[in-house]
Design a protein around this nucleic acid. Structure first.
Length: 579
RNA sequence: GGUCCGAUAGCUCAGUCGGUAGAGCAAAUGGCUUUUAACCAUUGGGUCGAAGGUUCGAGUCCUUCUCGGAUCACCA
């Protein structure tokens, strides 16, 4: 019903073939379809693209050969790190460092360094124009970006030759027989460029009067068009919503060095990548094997959460997006993988918040013959070392103006934590209220990394009991800045007891607790083959990244977080559907 | 789901007590052959998130809705 209405409304949009017939060029097509907006900025860029096609032929050539230094492609970042270039840069930088603000470097030194740069010969680099060219009559400066670093190029009318990209033959038309020019007017080409376009250049390196490394361009080739204007050069994309919706544009602003809370968006995700690779390396080096277990599973279990439900047509069964890989990983310890980990997404169909996204990344790992205490030791070392990898050597991070120290994790029983932090007055701590007291009064006070231990067994259905106090589970959770970042325990491996705990959960489920854990009979069967004593942990990667990047929302550490669609169609349809 | 805040030019924002819609950047045109958020001159650019209401008159006041943010409840 709703579906039909939705289709009807969608049908009212212009049909693609209709759009094609209105539009004259392929560029106007995407404007007519409403995919990119129609305004004076876009119109100017479309005009420039047409003029460029008339000048250089193919406006989207297939490749650009960049010069090679050592064994790497000459990305701008690599060129800047190239030893002779880096030495010249270091020299000019130390010289400029001694100059008064705004003063220019000594021309004699500059000329000497420029002679050194001549030895590099011709450089061929390519990148995106980060800004609109600063044109001064018959010469201009503009920066090229490889996404990470910027390099200035200098274009003079009398020195620049344009490259012809090959003839454009519209589909269905016979090839044009007129001979292609070998070169085109480079200055004409340059004047048609907009901020954001991609070009390849060839020329020689030099230092400008102000001491900035630049390429004096001799050949200029057009590589790709930016039809949409670039983000604001000072503010980037200021609206957090648009930064998340159009992450690609948000990332472009990173090459303009636009920072938010001290880091560019690119740096956030580079740091995230280094944390994850640090964790992988630590686990690989410790003899763990990485595995992938089902994302789609007939049982949504291993955690207390509401799953996403889907359906497999050929099998004719419902499937659930996994809420945790835990029970599969422990099946693998049964199978003989003594050290095993999985670093991947979990899905929970629950509310969104600054620390909850419907899909989130979790690292889970299990180690046979280890108990909860060994796991805390190991996890502490792993997190400390990975954090240092992510932050280039520091175990200190500043979050929200507060310093967090990853060098030492405190361990505190839940009860002691309440006695220390919880201003609970004369309330007696009992098995029934301890968790509530902890969550309400303690969690927000756990700023420095703290393992909380001695959880009630009743809320830990997959955990072994503490041998000294059977009412407690051998379980811990790691809290940092008031956020739960990890959860681990000595894994329950007795199939009989595990079955009974599942049955208890099932009863809780039937009496209304819809998030109580789902019984998994095959898991009980797996345990019946015998599982070694083992400890396991799940670490919330996104939350750790938040702490390392001073981001207050999980959506700022996920490249493409889920957002409501921009179109209003859905809302309109729902209203109609209810009538 | 509850509460609070926000949406104005392509971007960043101002808009006083309800009285003709503003600036900077970006764009277009012209000038300038080592600039640094380049500069100078000229020009164009608006469904004030959407719908309704109050009013002689609404960007501004009221109601509803959409989207987003913050926060509370549940979950990691």
């Amino acid at each position: 019903m709703t579906f039909e209405l939705k289709t009807k409304i969608k049908d009212q949009r212009p049909k693609p073939d209709k759009i094609m017939s209105i539009a004259n060029t392929r560029t106007e097509t995407i404007i007519a379809a409403g995919i990119i907006e129609e305004n004076d900025q876009v119109a100017a860029r479309v005009e420039h693209l047409r003029a460029l096609e008339a000048l250089v032929g193919n406006s989207y050539p297939n490749k650009f050969d960049r010069s090679r230094i050592s064994d790497q492609e000459d990305a701008i970042s690599n060129l800047l790190a190239f030893k002779p270039v880096a030495e010249v840069l270091a020299e000019i930088k130390s010289h400029i460092g001694t100059l008064a603000e705004g003063a220019r470097p000594d021309p004699v030194l500059k000329d000497a360094l420029n002679k050194k740069l001549k030895f590099y010969g011709t450089a061929r680099v390519s990148g995106r124009l980060t800004t609109t060219p600063r044109t001064m009559g018959k010469a201009a400066f503009v920066h090229l970006s490889d996404g990470k670093h910027r390099l200035q190029i200098y274009v003079r009318r009398d020195d620049v030759q344009g490259v012809f990209n090959g003839k454009l033959t519209p589909a269905g038309e016979p090839p044009n027989q007129t001979p292609a020019p070998e070169a085109v007017d480079g200055w004409e080409l340059f004047k048609l460029l907009d901020g954001g376009d991609f070009v390849g250049v060839e020329g020689f390196l030099f230092l400008t009067n102000t001491g900035e490394l630049s390429i004096h361009v001799e050949k200029l080739q057009f590589l790709s068009k930016a039809l949409l204007p670039m983000p604001d050069k000072m503010h980037g994309i200021a609206d957090p919503e648009l930064r998340r919706r159009y992450r690609y544009a948000d990332l472009i602003a990173s090459s303009l060095q636009v920072e938010h809370d001290g880091l560019t968006t690119r740096e956030v995700f580079e740091r995230r990548a280094r944390l994850i690779s640090g964790m992988r390396r630590f686990l690989d080096d410790a003899g763990y094997i990485e595995v992938e277990t089902p994302m789609l599973s007939p049982k949504a279990t291993g955690a207390a959460a509401t799953p996403f439900e889907t359906y497999h047509n050929a099998l004719d069964i419902p499937l659930y997006a996994r809420i945790a890989p835990e029970l599969y990983l422990k099946r693998l310890t049964v199978g003989g993988f003594e050290k095993v980990y999985e670093l991947n997404r979990n899905f929970r169909n629950e509310g969104l918040s600054h620390k909850h996204n419907p899909e989130f990344t979790m690292l889970e790992f299990y180690c046979a013959y280890m108990d909860v205490n060994g796991m805390m030791d190991f996890a502490e070392a792993m997190i400390r070392e990975s954090v240092e990898k992510a932050t280039a050597g520091s175990h200190l991070v500043v979050f929200d103006g507060r310093e967090i120290d990853f060098s030492k994790f405190e361990r505190l029983s839940m009860k002691d934590a309440i006695l220390r932090y919880g201003d609970v007055g004369a309330v007696e701590i009992t098995d029934a209220n301890i968790v509530e007291l902890f969550e309400d009064h303690v969690e927000e006070n756990l700023i420095q990394p703290t393992f909380i231990v001695d959880y009630p067994k009743s809320i830990s259905p997959l955990s072994k009991a503490n041998p000294e106090n059977p009412q407690l589970a051998e379980r811990f959770e790691l809290f940092i800045n008031g956020m739960e970042c990890a959860n681990g325990f000595s894994e329950l491996n007795d199939p009989q007891e595990q079955y009974e705990r599942f049955v208890d959960q099932q009863k809780a489920r039937e009496s209304g607790d819809h998030e109580a854990m789902v019984l998994d009979e095959d898991y009980i069967r797996a345990l019946s083959y015998g599982m070694p004593p083992a400890a396991g942990i799940g670490i919330g990667i996104d939350r750790l990244v938040m702490l390392l990047t001073n981001r207050h929302s999980i959506r700022d550490v996920i490249l493409f977080p889920h957002m409501r669609p921009l179109t209003k169609e859905v809302g309109e349809v729902e209203e109609v559907g209810e009538v």
